[in-house]
Design a binder for these strands. Sequence first.
DNA 1: GTGGATTCGTAAGCTTTACTAACAAACATG
DNA 2: CATGTTTGTTAGTAAAGCTTACGAATCCAC
Lengths: 384, 384
Amino acid sequence: MPQTHQRREGSAPLRPRRLATKSLPEHNRRNNRALVLQHLFHTGPMSRADLARESGLTRVTIGDLVAELQGEGIVHELGQRPGARPGKPATLVEIDADAFHIAAIDLSPEDSFIGVVMNLRGEVQHRLEQPLAGAMGETAIEKVLQLVAGLLHMSSSTVLGLGVGTPGIVDGAGVVRQAPNLGWYDVDLGERIRRVFDYPVYVANDANAAALGVRTFGSIPTGSVMVVRVEHGVGAGLVIGGGLIEGEQYAAGEIGHIVVDENGERCACGRRGCLELAVATPHLRRRVAEAGAAQRDEVLKDAGHALGIAMSPVISMLNLNLVVLSGPADLIGGTLIETARNTIRERTMSAVSNGLDLRTADGDEDLVLMGAGVLVLSGRLGVS
Amino acid sequence: MPQTHQRREGSAPLRPRRLATKSLPEHNRRNNRALVLQHLFHTGPMSRADLARESGLTRVTIGDLVAELQGEGIVHELGQRPGARPGKPATLVEIDADAFHIAAIDLSPEDSFIGVVMNLRGEVQHRLEQPLAGAMGETAIEKVLQLVAGLLHMSSSTVLGLGVGTPGIVDGAGVVRQAPNLGWYDVDLGERIRRVFDYPVYVANDANAAALGVRTFGSIPTGSVMVVRVEHGVGAGLVIGGGLIEGEQYAAGEIGHIVVDENGERCACGRRGCLELAVATPHLRRRVAEAGAAQRDEVLKDAGHALGIAMSPVISMLNLNLVVLSGPADLIGGTLIETARNTIRERTMSAVSNGLDLRTADGDEDLVLMGAGVLVLSGRLGVS
DNA sequence: GTGGATTCGTAAGCTTTACTAACAAACATG
DNA sequence: CATGTTTGTTAGTAAAGCTTACGAATCCAC
């Protein structure tokens, strides 16, 4: 029976149905501006006429938008396009990557906070490390503020905004609901930073940020990515169709305490055989050490197998094509990821596993920082 | 290293990054029209001033939009609001639920196709059944066309569009990529119907449709729902944040061949211990019959356990709050769903499982038909 | 009963936005 | 050199939602 007009009366605090929002002419403009920037960002320098063709907007409108962006210094002309073609030569336009900088910080490492200043292409300009020295709670917040101050001081260009990737559960407003490792509970981190520095601040969970980083800066353009971070704990970030999956309580990706082996070791959470016991670095390193060199591969196999068990249903359910595993290269690189790959192949339909690309984070390990940058790019310029 | 301008060069056919689309003033209007209808649909009759307050648009704009909708007959005035308040009495406006009808068909039952004509509130006006008699391939398409013809003939109002929930993998354009049970491969079902009847046609996978049905017509307003359908096979549909999750190959929700027991029975797909073997109705009924009345509960427990194992990682990863299990009530109703609930509780963080509501489809079993209706509502009116 | 306050719905005119039409500039080609 | 092409811009138009203002209809206080 359709009960259309009925309001909620249950028990659990469900998130309300998200109603669409009104749209005004100015939203229109913002969207088209972002569209132009998105094309320039992902395709590189191009002419106004190119932009018009690719976006579907008219040359006139594009000209107007480009002029606006040029006026703000986000975009600049690059001179005429080389090479001979009939017609008036095109004037290339590109995003002025160094006109603005982005400050990005990663609060997920265990013993320090890391911050960078990057340009609009995501190229790191400066890097700063803030040792934690066991700081928690308010003291840890102080450390964040110090790090931000240092970064802002370093930047030579106007800073577009500040992106933060933090462990823990972060709601849509930038409030850290809980981050046990840092002793944070309902800390409005965004507001705390904003109050001191008055810059646009964007906060997200570290794994979620990493997923954004992969999607925007990764070498494979794709609609959906899952990033699984194996660190002190295990967490995942998920981007589908361009958007982050946050979860009803903003706890999406909290997969550390999925049970993968009902008869496994007892976990601190009270259950047996949690994924975290099998793969999180402290446990895994302990196990590797206990096993000795000869049995090392067995341990890594078990870990990869556990990971595969946990990920298979998710990959099947969502029909993902790209899963990035991030963590200490010496642990996740070889046997572990190969075993995970095999386990997934054994546990999912071939139609799904054939399309799947499970890989480690290639290159540097700045995924979280990149993603924190994307938060700013996306929030300020509509680029992602 | 960010490789922004690089294009794909890999092997598997990834879906391209979905670029945002340009936005014109008319899109603006469509959005606001839909916003008005969405409010009327979910809140019931209200005045123009109410609509203005709730939507954020001005009374003037609302007046204009309502006049437009009134002109098209989608909305009508209901007279003055009863009850005494200061000020000029408000004129209530509501969606004229019977001004238009929607034809919805469900191709998922094993031995017949079901069709209904519903009004805009989802209330069924007429029902029609088309026995399949083993029809497959082109013959099955003929049956669909006959069913549609019958429904259109029955409807007394203008038909807004036609929604189809079909088993199998359906792409975004309404093409059934594969539906083995019906012998369909790359059948452009939408186009086939449209060619004959010239109505707007929307096609989706049955489980996906069911998820839409729950979200829009269900008694619990929620952002995310997972519907798990236990029938001849096992399939799931997933709505997150208002949108269907389709999957990179449009195969999201195809969870029948997730492995839940590595040492289980051999499945037709070649693997061991697929979810489908444990819970799909043919297998389950066979097992129940073999076990006899005394062992019936054990069989159902095993099935529920298998379901719980498969769903736990997904529920954790996505932080879902509402999961609806749909299927034969005599099988899924008692022991099975309770066991699944327990298994999930045992295998996920309490933060997740506490928020979770796992229930059977309440009331009638028309979820797929309801969802097929939502396809039309959403496509034609922007209501969902 | 009457005047004031309040709320509702609608006109009239304005601003923003993107569009069409038209054109000058700059180049290639026969 | 004339012609055709392509680029980017100028001028004017159409659509959409906004602000301001006003009449209509009701309640409430005196």
